[in-house]
């Protein structure tokens, strides 16, 4: 196997709330190859976003980060600000859920795009504006040169997300982290944006990390998925495997809780209980209290990730025998 593009090893995040220190991320191991598309799925608070905010040094002073994030021979954890700035937005770009709050409302779209181009590609303002127009055209905004003069409020939510994608592309990144990029958008607009991301990936060798709570979105747009629960990756597998042979009971539980659009209607099987709070995790496996396969051994220790097949890992003591 070739050297991964980015290699996250035993990444931990602790938040100091002033009263106590709460561990939000419990040792994430995740390697992404160049050009690969990986989905991160999990419920709110599972650590999907925090993983990348920590890797890029975007968490602020209250967070203590441990472990390693290897990218192009450097460790990004604890790297000086100047080194991070050369990577962030340029080599690794990130887009977020709500595009209108990521754009500055009082600057024209063109100025904001040109700023990114001047910063990451050292262009002069004239060249940057021309390139900004080309990028807007690239993300499917009609009449791009005229649109450069628009403010964010003059564009729809879907158009603003296209602008954010254009801005992410400004630095010609090797990896794009898309954090719930379509959650705030309507279904027909979501389909447009996901199609655009696919198209960009086909034309470049950019890797994509798609963070989503929607298994369907991830299934259609990535090759591989990591399921996260309470600050850990509990299963990491190719898309087909996740749906056909999920190894972790949480993954099977998520699939059983989702209704289908076609075929006979079946009663939904809900996962009982609630996600534990990060400062009040149960002993051993965090999913144990909600698990249908629970046995005493689950509480004894946190189950390590076991390799079940090539490219398929699961952190469950029952996964060893291949049944869950």
């Amino acid at each position: 196997m070739t050297e991964p593009l980015i290699d996250i090893r035993n990444l931990t995040v602790d938040f100091d709330t002033g009263h106590r220190v709460v561990r939000a991320l419990h040792g994430i191991d995740l390697a992404i190859q160049s050009g690969e598309a990986v989905g991160l799925v999990g419920e709110s608070g599972s650590g999907k976003s925090v993983t990348w905010l920590a890797a890029l040094g975007l968490l602020g002073g209250r967070a203590r980060i441990g472990g390693e994030v290897r990218f192009e021979g450097h460790n990004l954890v604890g790297a000086p600000a100047s080194e991070l700035e050369a990577v962030r937005g340029a080599r690794i770009a990130m887009i977020f859920q709500d595009p209108s709050s990521s754009l500055n409302p009082v600057y024209r779209i063109g100025q904001q795009l040109a700023e990114a181009l001047q910063l990451h590609r050292g262009m002069t303002s004239g060249a940057a504006l021309a390139e900004a127009g080309r990028l807007l055209d690239r993300v499917g905004i009609a009449d791009a040169m005229r649109r450069l003069r628009d403010y964010p409020h003059e564009l729809s939510g879907g158009m603003n997300q296209r602008v954010m994608i254009a801005m992410a592309l400004a630095g010609q990144p090797q990896i794009l982290i898309a954090d719930e990029p379509t959650t705030a958008l309507d279904a027909t607009i979501q389909a447009q944006i996901l199609e655009l991301l696919q198209e960009i990936r086909r034309d470049s060798s950019m890797a994509l990390v798609l963070i989503s709570h929607d298994l369907g979105v991830v299934a259609e747009n990535t090759d591989r998925v990591c399921v996260m629960y309470a600050g850990r990756i509990v299963e990491d597998a190719p898309i087909a495997t996740i749906f056909e042979a999920p190894a972790h009971p949480y993954t099977s539980g998520l699939l059983a809780a989702l209704p289908e659009l076609e075929g006979p209607r079946r009663p939904l099987v809900a996962i009982p209980g609630v996600v534990p709070e990060p400062w009040n995790l149960p002993p051993g496996c965090s999913f144990a209290p909600r698990c249908t396969e629970f046995e005493a051994a689950c509480e004894a220790a946190v189950p390590p990730a076991v390799e079940l097949a090539r490219g398929h890992r699961a952190a469950c003591i029952h996964a060893r025998s291949g049944v869950a």
Binding site: T188, A191, L261
Partner: peptide, 23 residues
């Protein structure tokens, strides 16, 4: 269009209909 915009795990050769523009 609305139905075809729903991402599903197994899309057996179903054609996606993508609408142009916003409402």
């Amino acid at each position: 269009a609305l139905v075809s915009a729903i991402p599903v795990a197994t899309r057996k050769g179903r054609q996606r209909l993508i609408l142009k523009g916003d409402p």
